[in-house]
Each structure stands twice: as structure tokens, then as C-alpha cells.
Design a protein around this nucleic acid. Structure first.
Lengths: 346, 346
DNA sequence: GACAGCCGTGGAAGCGCTTCCACGGCACCG
DNA sequence: CGGTGCCGTGGAAGCGCTTCCACGGCTGTC
């Protein structure tokens, strides 16, 4: 392993001077700089990141805490994060979270500047005690798709208005003439405390109420965030027979696919017999022709990473930014008027 | 920041003893150990990973080089890697690769033990010069879905037999009675040197030849690994009119979706008018009912990570392991007999 | 022509840990 | 009862870097 001392020896200078060259200090004459650079080149020298980190008190690393397995949308967000971080000198350390234990372990390990210079947390609201320790340690934290606990500060948040998203979807269905609109989302008491689904459900309820449409408990179903569960819950909805919904708003596209699967399996047609709206607009949604509330997943990742880099860049950063990204209704072919209207028209 | 010296002072011992406790050295009496552990607990002490790494010459980190954006299958593999690494004490540093420049930068940065203790490289055959430097630096490398350049050694490879996979798909179509079978895959000259598609094509060609079926150049199409391109290429195939294929073997499910899209848009039915086989069995494939050659993506990630951990565990590792994971034909609803046969039967 | 000041540089200290070496104390042996 | 050996421990050295301090030599000024 070639070290800074080797370079110094070869260039006939002191180690300090080599270090200055490495760190673009203006305190080095052009001639010396050239000699040092030549030596570096010749020896193919690369500074040891751990030594550098130990000495400077930071590690040029960003920790990304992400529920990588649970949501398809996390991947697309992560892509954005990776893309943005690629433009920087920071390495990305990935921490997957599947359970609260998992999460707490990671946060406990990360609450010091020696592990990561900054933290990007996706979809999980971190315990405020951890947030405080992080702040005390001078580690900026950016929350993506999550809001900080009350009276806790983070460097930045990047979110969308999920309540509004729920309104958009529900309003679309109401406007088409639906009244028996079901909602299918995550368990509100999910262990990791994801709230998107809950908020989308709030938007759904509020919109129905505002329109004077009764919110029927039997039309609201919950379950783990996977296609298979969504399918089963939809089968339950369809089993309501005559009382079955004419439309389903699923809290995510993944779940919407489960809905479509169940509907298809029941021999019903979409959107003639039943309309389906999803949320996210993941890659396959356009293939499937799913009507959905689009959120800019990739862009949100980029934005969050950019905010983190900003916080990392400005030394005594203390400004808190808050980005709210827009939602769009993408109307494709899984929504249409309810069956009675179709019949009426036909 | 509480350091090892603080703990030592509090416990009334030397720093060396604290270190021994941290590293489970048997050279510490039970009483002393207890006192030290109490001090650690009380101060909520956590060792600084950089200091530790600098001192021990390794960083408890695994580098994962992955073309994260280009292939859907990479994500599922990465999930397996993450899951396996979760069981270890190693952190995962993610290096995305989109271009050769990208790749070379990362490898250049990684060819030393101070950045990552081990490397897991996905789908990319690394330049053998880098591999040699890595070996010289004592950094074990595991190749997942890639084979090492000739006369280069890596700690392990985890692969599937893509040629065989091409055979399986093609044979399935031949057995159904197809003869005009198209192939749609990646550009053979893709900049990052992915070979899966090329090998699947080889299997396709070999199987046709073995069956005495002419390999027609106009039925073989290439393009970037995205749905939209696949769709366009398929449109070209369909434009062959009477000479159009009765079946298409796509080198990946992503591309197969593009094929299905084009077929559907052309008003043709699957599998009545045209059969489609994909490769990978990604999540959506079961939803779409795509017949495909399944490869255990998640499992391959786990396996590769496990092999890397093994190599990392055994000090003077020199054994080279080579895992070849099985492929399965998953017959769903996008393949059937060619149209004339259907007619013949009906 | 002497002095102040600045620029460029060398080198030591220190980041927080591991590990090696040395040493004191004890048990055991002859 | 003295010597040998081992166990448990303290402490220093060293990992490779950054940074601070000090210093030599130059320029510029009165």
C-alpha cells in the first residue's frame, strides 16, 4: 500500500505538502504542486479514506435508510437518490429496514458522525429521541416521504400531499358517477409507522363526506402491502354481491394490481363492471393501463439527496427546507362510469 | 464524542483492556470485563468505525457494484444481497454503474482494501487488470451473473446457464409447433458488456439449428434493454406481414412486456395469434400471465453475498466456488400452438 | 541597509482504535 | 522457600491522514 509518506519521499517534499495538494490548498507553489502530482500519478497513489475520515472527523458517506423490501415505490425513489449522489463525492451506505428492531438498530448505530455524515430516511418517521441525538452529533437528516415528529427538527423534508392524493383519486371516481367506492390500503397500525396509506384514506373519507356520500366501513379494507393480500381483500369486496363496490381506490399501484387480478378472476370487466384507481404510477402501471395518482418517485429521491448534499455543503447549516412535490391524476383505461350508467347509456 | 479513553477512565482500566473487551479477547478476567461493560453501557459508548478500520486494516464494508438502473432484475438480486448482508456485521456500499466510465471509476476507487473488504459485482465482467489488482490487495471478489475474464481468478461466481435458458425457451416454442420464432434481445455490442442476452440468443440459435429450423436474420432483433424499444422492434417484426413470426422469445421479461404491448396494439391476440416467452420471472410476470424462463434472482443475490462472507471469513481464503443456479420454465398464458394449428384443431 | 511581513514548507501532534511488549503478581514446582 | 511460568493488565507504538505551528527565505518598505 502506497502511503502519503511514499509520495512525499518521491516528490522530495513533506507529507504535509502532499496533503495540501490533495486538498487543493492554495498554499502550495505551482512547481511543488506539479512535482507532487507527478509523484502521485507515478505511484498510482490514492488516499486512504479511513485515515482521512478519522483525521477530519467525517467519512464522506451518506446513510440511506430505506424499507427496501416492503414497497415497490422505494426502489424508484432509491434510484433517484443514487443518481443524485453519483454527482457528489459521497458514498452511499444502504440500510434496509424491515422491522422496528431493524430500524432501531440502524438508527442507534448511525447516531454519530463517524458512521455517516448525513442521513436520508425514507418513508419511516424516525423516533424523535434518535433525531435529537443525530442533531446533537451534527448529522443532518433528510426525511423523504415522511414527516418529522412534532417539535423535532430535520434538515429537510421532501413529501407529497397524500391526503390530497386521496382526494384526487376519490374525486375522479365521484365525477365519473361512482358512489359505492371502496378503499383498499395498508394496515393503519403497521409496525413501521408508514402513514401514506392512512393519509390517502383520509383524503378518500373527506372527499366522500364532502360530496354527501356515505362512508361505508364494509367498503374499507386493509392488509399488508402486497399484491396477494390486495387480491384477497378484493375478493371479499366482490363477495358483497349486489352491495359490491363499483370502484376501488387502492393506496398503491402494487395493491391496485391485486385488485385487478381479483376482478379479472371473478370474470368481471374493468372498467365496465368495476373501476380501479391506484397510486404512485410505478413502471408497470402504464403497461397495465392503470389509472393512478402519479407521484414523482424518482424526482423525489433526487430532490431529497440534493437537499442532503446542500445541508452537508454549508457548514453551519440550520435552514430547514420543505419540498412538497406535485401529484397528477393519470387517467388510463381502468376507470370509467359505473355499470348502471353504462347500461343506461347503452 | 465518548472515546475508548473515557471508558477506560471510568472503568479504572487501560485503553488496551477496553479494546480487548470490545473484541472478545479471552485475555480479560470476568470481573474486569464486567466493569468495562458497565462503563460502556453507562456512557453509551460505541467504537468509532473509522479508527477501528484504520487500525485493523479493514473497514467492515462490502462494496456492491450494480447496474442499478438498466435491468429490473438487478433490483431483485440486490434485495437478496441486502438480505444476506443483513445477517452479517458488514455495511453495504452501493456503487451504481451506468456507463463504462462509471464502472472504471468505481473499480479504480475500489482496488484497495481500505474502501471495501470485499466486492460483489453484478452482471458486469470487470476488466481483468482491475481484478488482478484487487486480488493483489487481498480483496475477494464475487461475480454475480457474470463470468471472469479468462485466466483471472475471483473468490466465487454465481451464475445461471443462459445458453441453456435460451434452449429451454426455444424448445418450448418448438414443441408447441412454432417454426417462425423471433428473438428479441439486447444489443450484442452493449457498452457495459452484458452477455446474458447474447448467450440466450446462442441457445436460441443452437436449438433452432438442432431442430433443423432455419435461423432467419430478419427474425432477430436487438435494442436497448427497455420496454419501449422492445415494443418498437416488435412492431417491425409484425410489419413482416405474412412472414411475421408466430412466436417471440424475449431475452427478458421487461422486453417481453414491450412485445406484448406491441402485439396488443396491433390488435393481435396472445397466444392465439402469437406466443411470447420472457426471461427472469420478475414480479409482474405472474400478474401478466407471462410464460417465462425463471431464474432465482433473489436467491442468486443471497448466494453471492453468502459466498463473499465466506471468503471474508476465512482468512487465507483461496478456494474458488462456482454456483450455477437452476432455471425453470414457467408456462403461463402467453404461449400456445401457432395459429395454423389452432385453426386445424378448431 | 535593516527590519517587518508574508509565502511556502517541514514536521510534529493528534484523530480513536488495535496490538505488541513488558511487567507485576500469583500459583506451582522442585 | 526461591525460581519458573503464566495470566491479566497498562501503556506505547503505529495505522495514514490533516492541521497547526514554527521557521527560513524572500520581497518590500522606510
Amino acid at each position: 500500500m502506497v502511503t502519503i509518506a511514499d509520495v512525499a519521499a518521491k516528490a522530495g517534499v513533506g507529507a504535509g505538502t502532499v496533503s495540501r495538494v490533495l486538498n487543493d490548498s492554495p498554499q502550495v507553489s505551482a512547481a511543488t504542486r506539479a512535482r507532487v502530482l507527478a509523484a502521485i500519478e507515478e505511484l498510482d497513489y490514492r488516499p486512504n479514506p479511513m485515515a482521512r475520515g478519522l483525521s477530519r472527523g467525517r467519512c464522506q458517506t451518506v446513510g440511506v435508510v430505506v424499507p427496501f423490501f416492503t414497497h415497490a415505490s422505494a426502489v424508484e425513489r432509491l434510484r433517484g437518490v443514487v443518481a443524485e449522489l453519483d454527482t457528489s463525492r459521497y458514498d452511499l451506505v444502504l440500510f434496509n429496514v424491515e422491522s422496528p428492531v431493524h430500524r432501531d438498530e440502524h438508527f442507534a448505530a448511525l447516531t454519530r458522525r463517524d458512521r455517516a455524515d448525513g442521513l436520508l430516511v425514507m418513508s419511516l418517521p424516525p423516533p424523535s429521541s434518535d433525531l435529537e441525538r443525530l442533531a446533537a452529533a451534527g448529522v443532518p437528516v433528510v426525511l423523504l416521504d415522511a414527516r418529522p415528529p412534532e417539535d423535532t427538527q430535520v434538515a429537510a423534508t421532501v413529501v407529497t400531499d397524500d391526503v390530497e392524493g386521496g382526494r384526487i383519486a376519490t374525486h375522479h371516481l365521484l365525477a365519473l358517477g361512482h358512489e359505492r367506492i371502496a378503499f383498499l390500503g395498508d394496515d393503519p397500525a403497521n409496525p413501521l409507522g408508514f402513514v401514506s396509506s392512512v393519509e390517502r384514506e383520509q383524503g378518500y373519507r373527506a372527499t366522500l363526506e364532502a360530496a354527501g356520500v356515505e362512508v361505508r366501513p364494509e367498503l374499507i379494507r386493509h392488509g399488508p402491502h402486497v399484491r396477494s393480500t390486495a387480491r384477497r381483500r378484493t375478493e371479499e369486496l366482490l363477495a358483497l354481491r349486489a352491495d359490491r363496490p363499483t370502484a376501488v381506490f387502492a393506496a398503491s399501484d402494487t395493491q391496485a394490481l391485486g385488485v385487478l387480478e381479483a376482478v379479472r378472476a371473478a370474470g368481471l370487466r374493468v372498467p365496465d363492471d368495476i373501476s380501479v384507481v391506484g397510486f404512485d404510477d410505478i413502471e408497470v402501471s402504464s403497461y397495465v393501463g392503470l389509472t393512478t395518482v402519479r407521484q414523482p418517485l424518482y424526482e423525489s429521491g433526487r430532490r431529497a439527496a440534493a437537499r442532503l448534499l446542500e445541508a452537508l455543503g454549508t457548514e453551519g447549516h440550520d435552514g430547514t427546507t420543505h419540498d412538497e412535490l406535485d401529484l397528477d391524476l393519470i387517467v388510463r383505461s381502468t376507470t370509467g362510469p359505473p355499470p348502471d350508467r353504462v347500461r343506461g347509456r347503452g
